[in-house]
Computed example of a mutant assay.
Amino acid sequence: MKLSVLDLVPVRKDQSSADALAATLSLAKVADELGFQRYWLAEHHNMPAVGSTNPPVLISLVASATERIRVGSGGVMLPNHAPLVVAEQFSLLEAAFPGRIDLGIGRAPGTDPVTSWALRHGAGGVSDDAVNRFPEYLDNIVSMMAPEGVGLMAGGRQHVLHATPAAASVAELWLLGSSDYSARLAAEKGLPYVFAHHFAGNGTDTKAMIELYRSTFQPSELLSEPKTFLTVNASVAETAEEADRRALPQLLTMLKLRTGQPLTAQPSIDEAEKTEIPEAHQGLIDTMRSRWIIGSAAYAKARLAGMAEEYGVDEVMVNPVGSAYEGTDPRTAPAREETLRLLAG
């Protein structure tokens, strides 16, 4: 079973954005050294606890700091961007780091409605029906990144458009999603697909979406058979008790998100342990905890192997969610790094 990493660049209350980026680069180097398969960076906007606002920039930083690991987006939220811009960005990344770049694409906004408006329209950009035109935009990116480019009719003549002048290779394209829409679209277009089990799915949802994708898959020039893997939140430590303590700040952050409370930077473990969880919300915390992998190395490895077998995948992408104690160097994320080391050991 191959292991990969998903990183949202979490921002703790004791960190600046620069600190959070430094911690991410350190984590990426650890993943690279330990032999992890790929390192993906999410796209979220205007969130106090999440620093991954711009995947292409982050991918460039991470790929420059590592040697062999594949680096990609998990994912680029396409309705926020013009397809040509995405194609150009990832064509340049693939040119700089050939054979190491993944372009994961999603349809969700990844932010609140006001920020979404600013992303799409603040500079006179993407049209109002960007979400409805998602399949078309997806096709455009595939064509634009191809070495031969794509022909566009304008003014009665054909113009050839290339995302980069002389592509020697193309980033691997993945479709991401948290509903049956993305599973069906990935199958229809013959693309690799990942269901967002780490935040959207219970076991039934995940199994159903993966089976829907596999059963309706149509081979394409990009892919001859279905290709998918599993995503999961994880906190791993020497003991189950310590792993649970490290996961608590992220559980509380997700509780705020799910219940519409004002969001803040991620609390320290010390602060989280002093937080009183309302009885009405304890069930939600327990449900999230049961879906995450929280425990010792032996437990986590067995759980990952069991999930890989249950869903029929040979790769699992882990989002290491451990926070830090007060007094931890703000430019580091030791709990997140230990999760990777224990899983790989």
Results as ranks from 00 to 15, higher is better:
residue 24 T to N: 02
residue 25 L to T: 06
residue 25 L to H: 11
residue 27 L to M: 12
residue 27 L to P: 03
residue 28 A to L: 00
residue 28 A to E: 03
residue 30 V to I: 13
residue 30 V to Q: 03
residue 32 D to Q: 08
residue 32 D to C: 04
residue 32 D to N: 11
residue 34 L to K: 12
residue 34 L to Q: 14
residue 35 G to C: 08
residue 36 F to K: 00
residue 37 Q to V: 01
residue 39 Y to N: 02
residue 40 W to S: 04
residue 42 A to V: 14
residue 43 E to A: 05
residue 44 H to R: 15
residue 45 H to G: 03
residue 45 H to E: 01
residue 46 N to R: 08
residue 48 P to K: 04
residue 48 P to E: 02
residue 48 P to V: 01
residue 49 A to I: 01
residue 50 V to E: 00
residue 50 V to S: 06
residue 51 G to C: 05
residue 52 S to G: 13
residue 52 S to H: 04
residue 54 N to M: 07
residue 55 P to H: 12
residue 56 P to Y: 13
residue 56 P to L: 03
residue 57 V to P: 06
residue 58 L to R: 08
residue 60 S to Q: 15
residue 61 L to G: 01
residue 61 L to F: 15
residue 62 V to F: 12
residue 62 V to E: 10
residue 62 V to A: 13
residue 63 A to H: 14
residue 64 S to K: 15
residue 64 S to V: 06
residue 65 A to V: 04
residue 66 T to G: 13
residue 66 T to R: 14
residue 67 E to V: 06
residue 68 R to S: 13
residue 68 R to W: 07
residue 71 V to R: 06
residue 72 G to Y: 12
residue 72 G to M: 03
residue 73 S to N: 03
residue 73 S to I: 00
residue 74 G to Y: 10
residue 74 G to D: 06
residue 74 G to K: 03
residue 75 G to C: 14
residue 75 G to P: 13
residue 76 V to D: 10
residue 76 V to R: 04
residue 79 P to I: 00
residue 81 H to K: 00
residue 82 A to W: 08
residue 82 A to M: 10
residue 82 A to C: 10
residue 82 A to P: 12
residue 83 P to T: 03
residue 84 L to I: 10
residue 84 L to T: 06
residue 87 A to D: 05
residue 87 A to C: 14
residue 88 E to T: 14
residue 88 E to N: 12
residue 90 F to A: 02
residue 90 F to G: 06
